[in-house]
Deep mutational scan, measured.
Amino acid sequence: NKSRCTICSKLAEIRHEVSVNNVTHKLCSNHCFNKYRLAN
């Protein structure tokens, strides 16, 4: 079950899903999750 990561755009296994204003951001790693948190 692979999806495209919101941060790095890599097609990968999604580890984190963050839902903001009915938009789901898919994040493939802790690294991308941290980058997402810093950016938002």
Score class of each variant (00 low, 15 high):
residue 37 R to E: 15
residue 5 C to F: 00
residue 38 L to N: 08
residue 32 C to V: 01
residue 38 L to C: 12
residue 12 A to P: 00
residue 21 N to E: 12
residue 40 N to T: 06
residue 13 E to V: 09
residue 15 R to S: 10
residue 7 I to L: 09
residue 35 K to E: 15
residue 15 R to N: 07
residue 11 L to E: 13
residue 34 N to M: 10
residue 19 S to V: 12
residue 22 N to R: 08
residue 26 K to W: 08
residue 10 K to M: 06
residue 26 K to T: 13
residue 7 I to F: 01
residue 34 N to W: 08
residue 24 T to A: 11
residue 19 S to C: 09
residue 23 V to Q: 14
residue 14 I to K: 02
residue 2 K to E: 03
residue 28 C to H: 02
residue 15 R to V: 14
residue 8 C to H: 00
residue 22 N to Q: 15
residue 19 S to F: 10
residue 1 N to A: 07
residue 34 N to H: 05
residue 6 T to P: 02
residue 7 I to E: 13
residue 19 S to L: 06
residue 28 C to G: 01
residue 4 R to S: 04
residue 37 R to W: 04
residue 2 K to L: 08
residue 23 V to E: 13
residue 22 N to A: 09
residue 14 I to C: 10
residue 31 H to I: 14
residue 17 E to T: 12
residue 34 N to R: 14
residue 23 V to L: 12
residue 10 K to S: 06
residue 11 L to R: 10
residue 22 N to P: 02
residue 34 N to D: 10
residue 21 N to A: 14
residue 20 V to K: 09
residue 31 H to K: 15
residue 25 H to K: 11
residue 23 V to R: 11
residue 4 R to C: 03
residue 11 L to V: 15
residue 30 N to T: 14
residue 21 N to V: 05
residue 7 I to H: 14
residue 36 Y to R: 04
residue 7 I to P: 01
residue 8 C to E: 01
residue 18 V to D: 06
residue 4 R to I: 06
residue 3 S to N: 06
residue 10 K to H: 06
residue 17 E to V: 11
residue 11 L to S: 07
residue 16 H to M: 04
residue 8 C to S: 00
residue 20 V to C: 03
residue 26 K to C: 08
residue 25 H to M: 08
residue 24 T to D: 07
residue 11 L to G: 06
residue 9 S to Q: 14
residue 5 C to S: 01
residue 31 H to G: 14
residue 27 L to M: 13
residue 12 A to C: 10
residue 1 N to G: 13
residue 5 C to V: 00
residue 34 N to T: 12
residue 32 C to K: 01
residue 13 E to Y: 03
residue 13 E to S: 04
residue 30 N to S: 12
residue 40 N to A: 13
residue 10 K to W: 00
residue 35 K to L: 06
residue 4 R to G: 07
residue 10 K to F: 01
residue 27 L to F: 11
residue 8 C to I: 00
residue 26 K to G: 11
residue 20 V to Q: 10
residue 18 V to L: 10
residue 11 L to Q: 11
residue 38 L to Q: 15
residue 30 N to P: 11
residue 26 K to E: 09
residue 32 C to F: 15
residue 37 R to F: 04
residue 3 S to C: 02
residue 36 Y to G: 07
residue 9 S to M: 12
residue 4 R to V: 10
residue 16 H to A: 04
residue 27 L to Q: 02
residue 6 T to K: 03
residue 23 V to I: 06
residue 29 S to T: 03
residue 8 C to K: 00
residue 3 S to E: 15
residue 22 N to I: 03
residue 15 R to D: 05
residue 31 H to R: 14
residue 16 H to I: 11
residue 40 N to V: 05
residue 35 K to T: 10
residue 6 T to G: 09
residue 24 T to Y: 05
residue 24 T to I: 09
residue 18 V to Q: 05
residue 19 S to D: 05
residue 20 V to F: 14
residue 6 T to L: 11
residue 23 V to M: 06
residue 27 L to H: 00
residue 24 T to F: 11
residue 18 V to Y: 03
residue 36 Y to H: 01
residue 31 H to V: 15
